[in-house]
Every structure is written in C-alpha cells, then in structure tokens.
Design a protein around this nucleic acid. Structure first.
Lengths: 235, 235
DNA sequence: CGGAGTGCCCGG
DNA sequence: CCGGGCACTCCG
C-alpha cells in the first residue's frame, strides 16, 4: 500500500489552498481557503457551513488543516452517555520516560515536532473500544462489513476484522501521508506497543503491492464497470 | 459662532469627493477620492502619503472621513513614555447609570447612533491633561498663545485660556458640524458634566454673533490685507 | 466594482 | 493571550 501525498479527504471538485501573508503586522500567518466545485471561494468555517447547509456535520472538521480532527470526535462522545464504554480512559501502563526542557532557544526536537499543529496523542488500540458496536441504516438493517484480502494481517491484541477496517479507515481519513501499515515487526509491537506502534498507520503489517496486483485490480474495476453498463442498458 | 457644514480641514486647493457605488455586490458602499491642487486624483492613504512626502504626518488622518482621528493621537501618546502625564487615565467618578437592552429589534437610540462610525468616547475635560505643556518651534522659542475675545466664556473646572483654545481647536478639526459652544448652562454642566456636556462642542458658552460682529471682522481682515500689501511693496 | 490581502475585534 | 472570523483597504 504505497501512495503519493493526498489532499485530505475533500469531496471531489473541492480544492484547498494555503496562502502565507507576505507583509504587514501579520506577516507569516497563513490563511486557508477552499474552492467549491462551482468555484466559490470559502474563507472560514462558518462560511463553509453556510455553503454546505445543515445536512453536513462539520463539528469534527478542522478548517485550517482540512482534515477530520480525531479528538474532536472523542469530545462529542464523552458527553453522550449512551456511548461511554466501560473501559479505562487513560493508558498509564504505557507511560514513557520524558525529558522536559524549558527556556532553551529552539531545541531541535521541539522544532521538528512543530511541522504543523499536532493532534493530541490518541489512545493505543483505540479501535478495541468500538468492539461489538455495529452501524445500522435508517431501517435498522445492519450494514454489511467487508472481507479483508488474505495477505492483510492485523498487528495487535486480538483484533477483529472490524477493528482492522476501523484503523485503516481512520488512517485514510486523518492523515495526508501514504498509508503503508506498520513497519515494525508484529513481535516487537506486541511486546512494547507504546514505543513501536506508528500511530499514523493502521494496525496492519506492511503489505507489498506488486505491479501484478495493480493490474489485477484494474481488471476488476473494468469488469465492474461493464457489468454496471449492461445493467443500465437492460433497465 | 454659527456656520454652514465645513469640509473637514483640508489644505487649500485640495478637494474631497465621495462616490456611492450604484450596483454589484458592494452597491451602496462609498469610495472616497481626493484631488490635489494640480488635479491629481488620490485613491488611497498610501497614495496620499506618497504625494505629500515624508514631511506630513498622516497616522492620525482618517482617509474615509477626511478628518483627524482623536483616538489615534491618544494611542500613539500612550506608547511615548515621555508624554504620559501623572494623572489617572480613567474617569470613574463620572460613571453613569446604564440601561442595557438585549434582543430588541433595532432600538431607536441604537440606530440613531449608527450615523457613520463613531469615535470612541473621550475623556471629559481631556484638555486639562495638557495643562502646563507648551509648543515650541524648532529654535525652542515658545510659540505665542492667543487672547480670547472678552465675551468668550469657558465652562468647566478652572480652565486656562490654553485649555479653551485647545477645545476650540479640537472641535474645529474633529467635527463637521457647526461649532456653537455648549448649549447647557454653566451651572448644570459643572454639577453633572457626564450628562450635560456636549463632547462635540468646545468648552465655551454659546456665543451670539451679530451681523455687526461679522461686518467688523470683515473690516479687520481687509485692513490686515492692505497692511500686508504695503509691506510687500516696500520690500 | 471586484477581490486578494491585511487589520483588528471579540470570544474562548 | 491567542486565533478565528470578518470588515476593510487599495489597486487592477
């Protein structure tokens, strides 16, 4: 699973732009603009909400980064008592030794962390908090899950297929980096997850995609399109 | 002291123009232009600064209204420590009872206040903060003050001639309305200045100017011009 | 008159 | 104290 840098999951036709202010008191500050499919320029979250109407839920959408804010979701859940799970909310067993540096002019580590605003750390194996929960459609029909390819292996303690799908989905929606899976070995991750898990990658082992895999998938898509075309001609 | 609406104190030869936009999204907005004595059209404050050169201080000049902004002066002073006076900056003794009305559709008082952007309220008797300060010319010669006509009476606590001149000067430069002096009686103003002072008028009692006064002043001007003409012929 | 670019208020 | 949001300026 390799891929080039994606523009965070914007609907098709939407474009996001970052403009750095070049002069004045606020020089260096960046403004973020969106362009709707019909070319309208959107300059703020309230304006975006107005353009999209009430149907779209934007409370978890971070206007500046253009991505869904993971922790904003957590915040909303916390206040919906029917969704609070009976598990501990902290992860103190994973505490790491920390070096605290104050008032040093630009520690290198610090400036490296500064590449854009960071999300708050998220709970390791958060996916397991969703275990047993299933989405329903309006008529209370259970929405079918998916099967995973045989060569896609989860890494973590007793992960269900749903857990793995959840972590892949989160990685696709929250990150802008290529989604590669975990680079560390399954063994080292289970032994010391706090150190070895890459929180930005889904809980699957790195997969190698061959040119042959890509060709096969392209065939599948073409076949699906032909089927759809036939079905539409008959109707 | 009556007068018709004046064009805020522009140098002679300069003209100010307001043009209302007639159509488009910005219909109703007004653009302000200035014309220099040689007919050049000025469309913005930077352009005006360029045309006038570095000699003219424009930081307190409001391009849209064409007048000097009282509070802009205050703001600059605040950061020049050599000019901060050892007096209190607040006027809490003048606190007034206030009626707060929320969520009423368009209170009449509110909409009346909206006639153009308002200056921030200014300190009552702010002129007294300048007491004892005198302007000097480049050679550190004190610039002579002026005498006031005998029938021009100040209203306020122990106002010096300079205080009165300052308030008249401010009224002439900051306002566009006729300068009439205070209409309320001297007694009521001293008893409750916060209510009874008209902040847009100088701290003098209303003066009645007769046609005879005007004729006499016109004579004075004519005589002064004759004197000047003679002096220039001799030179 | 439009629109990019900046100032600046106000709420958290 | 900071940053989001929007009003406004200024020039094409």
């Amino acid at each position: 699973m390799e891929g080039k840098r994606r523009e965070g999951g914007l609907p098709p036709g939407w474009r996001r732009e970052e403009v750095v202010r070049k002069s004045g008191l606020s020089a260096g500050k960046t403004d973020v603009y969106y362009y709707s499919p019909d070319g309208k320029k959107i300059r703020s979250k309230p304006q975006l909400a107005r353009a999209l109407g009430d149907a779209v839920e934007l409370s978890a959408f971070d206007f500046r980064t253009g991505r869904v804010n993971f922790n904003a979701c957590r915040k909303r859940l916390r206040h919906d008592t029917s969704l609070i799970l009976p598990i501990r909310q902290t992860a103190s067993i994973f505490k790491q030794p920390v070096t605290l540096i104050r008032n040093r002019p630009e520690s290198k580590t610090k400036s490296e962390l500064k590449h854009g605003p960071q999300d708050q750390p998220r709970q390791l194996f958060w996916e397991k908090r969703l275990q047993g929960l299933k989405p329903f459609d309006n008529s209370e029909e259970v929405i079918q899950s998916m099967d995973l390819p045989r060569n896609m292996q989860g890494v973590g303690p007793n992960l269900s297929t749903e857990n793995i799908l959840q972590s892949i989905s989160a990685a696709l929606h929250l990150g802008t980096l290529p989604v590669t899976g975990q680079l560390a070995s399954k063994g080292s991750i289970l032994k010391n997850p706090g150190v070895n898990i890459d929180a930005n990658q889904p809980l699957i082992q790195q997969m190698l995609i061959s040119d042959e895999d890509i060709r096969r998938q392209e065939m599948n898509v073409r076949q699906a399109r032909r089927n759809l075309q036939e079905a539409m001609l008959k109707a």
